[in-house]
Amino acid sequence: MASQNLQSVPAELSPEEQERERAGQAYFDRIIAEDSRIEPRDWMPEAYRKTLLRQVSQHAHSEIIGMQPEANWISRAPSLKRKAILMAKVQDEAGHGLYLYSAAETLGQSRDKMMQDLIDGKARYSSIFNYPAVTWADMGAIGWLVDGAAICNQVPLCRASYGPYGRAMVRICKEESFHQRQGFEILLELSNGTPAQKQMAQDAVNRWYAPALMMFGPPDDDSPNSKQSMAWNIKRFSNDELRSRFVGMMVEQVRVLGLTLPDPDVRFNEETKKWEHGPLDWNEFKDVLAGKGPCNAQRMERRRQAHEDGAWVREAAAAYAAKQAQKEHAA
């Protein structure tokens, strides 16, 4: 519920403190073994808290930065209905960011610190949002592939061992399904339109396919923290496992769209019973994460600008609240 600061463990512990730590660890281990949930005021290992704080705040930042590629198209949406839908989706993403910031705060980090870290370029967010949305068809491809990959990743997170994170994910997943479907419909409409419209849809799918697959994170043999996250019941499936599942779903759905995936190597491996895909450019992934993607600078600048532009509103609201409180006090 309310945020709770968990002090880091001092190097020298008194016997009583040592006993408390031992009891805390034993209790934590039992909760995890029972696949139950850890709540904010429970004892938790410092590494667990740090891992979660990093993951949940990065996830929150991704939702907030993720508003930008689509917000850029609101004014150019091809109909009033599409404009209303896109606004609702972008508003949802803002909501997702706020649910997740609330969850992260329960781990002992203030909201303002997280916001400031994002603005100062100290925090990471999903690499996908550093790619440009160049045509209207990208609104379709983003909804279908990017929100689709996010759903695939997030459904298992509804069962994450940290209560506030799991609860935020439940709320988010309910809302995400509309995002993916509206994207699918945009692509389907274009695909059934003129040859030029169909080509536009195919081009957008071609652009977003590989970056969407990389949303699941590096391959398992290059993902050092995954094992611990799985042992803590934060992550339920490995990156490659989720990516393979996602490819399988897309193979089915792209047929309904009348389009193709830009990947000649997609196949179902009868032996492993898993979907396989062609090689992905992990150097590009690392570059984009390191700030060298096509839109990193633009996204950060926009976020900074929005924060600064909102400063007078925040100040005015705080001043008004202080004045009202004073009046009430006097009365």
Binding site: S102, D112, R314, A318
Partner: peptide
């Protein structure tokens, strides 16, 4: 800027039901 206080939010989903904790937010 002083940080806005944290509020817990409870929502009654329909008449006849209790308010249930939905989440939290910051507001002045």
């Amino acid at each position: 800027e002083t940080p806005w206080p944290l509020w817990e939010v409870f929502v009654r989903s329909s008449r006849g039901l209790s308010h249930v904790h939905a989440g939290s937010l910051h507001a002045p």
